[in-house]
Design a protein around this nucleic acid. Sequence first.
DNA 1: ACGTTATATTTTAACGTTAAACCAGTGTAT
DNA 2: ATACACTGGTTTAACGTTAAAATATAACGT
Lengths: 355, 355
Amino acid sequence: MTRVAEELGVSSMTISNAYNRPERVSESLREQIFETAERLGYAGPDPVARSLRRQKTNLAGVLYSNPLSYAFDDAAQVLFLKGVAAATEEAGMGLVLVPGSVGSSPNARASAVMDAAVDGFVVYSIADDDPLVEAALRRRMPTVIADQPLLEGVPFVGIDNESAAREVARHLVDLGHERFGVVSFSIAAADRAPGIADSHRQRSATLRVTRARLAGYEGVLEAAGLPWKEVPVYECFGSSKALGREAADVLLSQGPPPTAILALSDQLALGVIETAKERGLSVPEDLSVAGFDDVPEAATSRPPLTTVHQDHTKKGELAGRLLIAQLREEETEDTDLLPARLVVRDSTGRPPGTS
Amino acid sequence: MTRVAEELGVSSMTISNAYNRPERVSESLREQIFETAERLGYAGPDPVARSLRRQKTNLAGVLYSNPLSYAFDDAAQVLFLKGVAAATEEAGMGLVLVPGSVGSSPNARASAVMDAAVDGFVVYSIADDDPLVEAALRRRMPTVIADQPLLEGVPFVGIDNESAAREVARHLVDLGHERFGVVSFSIAAADRAPGIADSHRQRSATLRVTRARLAGYEGVLEAAGLPWKEVPVYECFGSSKALGREAADVLLSQGPPPTAILALSDQLALGVIETAKERGLSVPEDLSVAGFDDVPEAATSRPPLTTVHQDHTKKGELAGRLLIAQLREEETEDTDLLPARLVVRDSTGRPPGTS
DNA sequence: ACGTTATATTTTAACGTTAAACCAGTGTAT
DNA sequence: ATACACTGGTTTAACGTTAAAATATAACGT
């Protein structure tokens, strides 16, 4: 910019005005400025310098716990991101995907957060004790949390996981099932191998969503006289079909195998179904399977999956809007619970042996 | 930062060092600094100021032609993004999704590009004459283009669309088809209603990918003695099942209906199949349908879709890597053609009436 | 005691903008 | 003639950092 100003013998403020408030610069001078800029290769005000001066970047940051690229594997996460993007775009803001981790240390992950040049954060589904969240809050920037963790004073968007889980469990209990198995995603940090999680492990859960869903199942089963401590809970570290298959392999090999499997995500449930089929079990005749999330594939899988519907895109959009409202210093609700409802499809039925 | 420095009676440079080169500051002072910072609510060096000073943001920008949120609708685009994310994350960079347009004017879109605080751009599938591209290049930043446009001197990643299209067309010609229909996505800017695109429209194509695929079909059909000008090409403005259904409605209502429909994307093809089924046509017995892209759903749809496979994630990753290489001022190839190959599944077969 | 090296910190200057306040010249109404 | 408002600029200062070079202080070897 200085070069352009000098070339034309005007102050740099005039250049700035030519770009930012054209009406304050005479038409002819403005044209000269643009022309000279073009000639000198000046592409207009530098966004970084502008951000420094204006103290805002026009960028919203999204924080995931996993490596960025994993986020694109799960339809639920992509839909969430789509919602956030819709909201920020509407407000003319860009979206920054903060590099979660390169398999990197908690420290490195936190420092990626400290280094993000953004006006605020949307935190998506992160463990209670993850340093990412602490780092975001330390920056004292407007922040919205989706799904987890639930923190005092930080705006929150999510669903009532416990009651949704209760609905699913009740559905299966009502069908007459008595032998259950559960396929869970992470209960806490992956400091052990995947496998059956005992009650100690369950009690030390740091992922609120997992905790709530398991609690929902537990409540209903116990109320039906089915002791929770006898229900095997297989913990996977992630949410994919492949992991669901591993889990099913273990659960279906146990003593008297379960007649119903509750999965904490659709991806896991779909994996379970695949394995069941391979073992010659038909779903739902021999085994009922229920998921969670209602990703698009749940409706078209074979059989279509009984699951809990939630509107991931809307959740993202709401999170985005809440963030933007904060940036505009508008008053906002602190907690926004979105509806979730059981969707019964064909992957659940009466247990074998009942008519 | 200044406050922390004054509080401790040291220079601000020392604060900077405490964070950036801890070994240059005595242990005791460093601890005091962190403690005072905590107390005063200083969260560490401001990323914007640092970017200004260091003249780099550690951020890569991705440019889409459509509103950001659309990008999440098409699996192919999501996979591409995933690839870019994997590459940038590996290099410790964040990813900025530049707000494409709020249904906004070309000008507004270009200015979003001028305002993006990034170190370089990945341009994804944009029309030859779109001002976005020009804006990106005007910034004289490292840039990589994926799919389109193909510009002299700008690193490029994509596939050989024309020859891939030829393979699909040849497959169907070999099966014996003689009456074709084509479902295309945008040929040029959406300045008209969707519908059959005459040869004039086709010649004025500003989207290179569309142009190449159509040219591929044309070459093979003409060579087989089937005059291209008699082949109806239905132009949709976008790529979704819904649009594919509209197109199929028109094409299947025409004089003698086609026995084979070539779609420029899997989404469009899947839509065509849905409509065909609804009309009581079975695929491939009554109608053959081929797509393009090989999104995951193509393998599980009913019937599974004959299509052209390309590795979208790899394409994104390569684009990301090329950008990073440029940022590091390494030498790079200018054009990277990825392989693409015909995948024959069950949506194509011999035309009706042949055994 | 004296130059030498190492360590810890400071000084200087620049990165590129722009908000806010100010100023000179030209009407315009009173 | 005099205050008053426009128009089209300019000046000043600050946004928060850090590379590079300079300086002070302590420790060391001979």
